[in-house]
Amino acid sequence: MSKPSRPSEPMDPACLACLRLGWTMIAVFLVGGLVLESFHFVKLPFYEDSRLRRELWTLAHAHGTLLGAINVIFALTAARHMSEGARRARAAALLRFGAPLVPVGFFLGGFGAAEGDPSLFVVLVPIGGGLCAVAVAMLARDLLRPRTE
């Protein structure tokens, strides 16, 4: 049995924070998916009777899991390919700040929602989405930028 390999050097703290947040979000929102399934299983009226709430909470589950994965991928990619420390830290912070806002906005949007519109908490979604988009764009720009070394 081989010993688990150790990284040759510790991960940049900003990327490490993204990694931790990413896996935490994946864990939370996967469990959230199971909870939603259990709502179907017991036919919970509060959940079943509102098509919009079902849709919003499903979106919260899906986006939470996806953005968790994006945090993980970002951490691994940025640690290797974003050479400028301050820029990397800034992008990581934007992603960490924005990623939870999206599923939280969808989730809270399902409380007190009118039939056709989520509650006002849904404004968190575009804010979080915008922050994530900026972070990912910063990473993409660094990846596309020609390397000088």
Partner: peptide, 23 residues
């Protein structure tokens, strides 16, 4: 790791950070 924190990261904890300003 603490040493790696740049000043911007330190500011992140304050309300005036970029993310907070956008939000």
């Amino acid at each position: 790791n603490r040493a790696c924190y740049d000043p911007w990261m330190a500011r992140l904890r304050l309300p005036g950070s970029l993310a907070a300003r956008i939000a």
